[in-house]
């Protein structure tokens, strides 16, 4: 946890926390850290403890599925202005995919264990966080359902 005072504006200006109440923001900033990931490095790996989520400031993060006996498959990207990671909110708090930096990624990480404790103690804060996470999760779910429909209806080609 370095440069806590410098993180405030980074967190406050990220679209995910747009219009967040000032004192709530202060509480959250207390759980944040600034991070940089080099191309190809992992933000997290499937099965590991999910103790963070990331506000992506710059760059593209690729979610990959590990496939035994084959190279991993890249299945979704998340980009600057978005967040990645919600396994810290849902038991058993383990990552269900790999997340890798596709190019240099600058992000603010939020300590999930720390934030969980604060949300438990402050239900108003907890509600506020859920209100921001749920639409993101719902949209990604919807977009991925659309992709299933598209893959099932668009011909794959004949040869």
């Amino acid at each position: 946890m370095v440069q806590i005072e410098g993180l405030g504006p980074l967190v406050a200006t990220h679209p995910f926390f747009a219009d967040m109440d000032g004192s709530a923001l202060e509480t959250i900033v207390g759980c944040c850290a600034n991070e940089v990931f080099r191309t190809g490095s992992y933000l997290y790996r499937q099965g590991e403890a999910a103790d963070k989520f990331y506000l992506i400031r710059d760059g593209l993060v690729t979610l990959e599925a590990y496939v035994p006996g084959r190279p991993p498959i890249a299945i979704e990207t998340v980009e600057a202005g978005e967040i990645i990671g919600w396994s810290w909110l849902v038991k058993p708090y383990k990552w269900s995919n790999d997340a890798r930096a596709s190019g240099t990624v600058r992000a603010v990480s939020v300590d999930g264990a720390c934030l969980r404790r604060k949300m438990e103690a402050d239900r108003v804060l907890g509600y506020e966080i859920y209100k921001r996470f749920l639409p993101v999760m719902a949209r990604r779910l919807a977009q991925n359902r659309e992709r299933i429909v598209e893959l099932a209806t668009e011909p794959a080609g004949f040869d």
């Binding site: 593209l60 190279p71 498959i73 890249a74 978005e82 977009q143 992709r147 598209e150």
Partner: peptide, 21 residues
């Protein structure tokens, strides 16, 4: 694209997501 080999540097996801981005 809907999926790509690991290491692909482009965007992966729905077209609607690309429009939103």
């Amino acid at each position: 694209v809907h999926s790509a080999p690991s290491g692909y540097r482009g965007r992966i996801g729905s077209v609607a997501a690309a429009v939103r981005a």
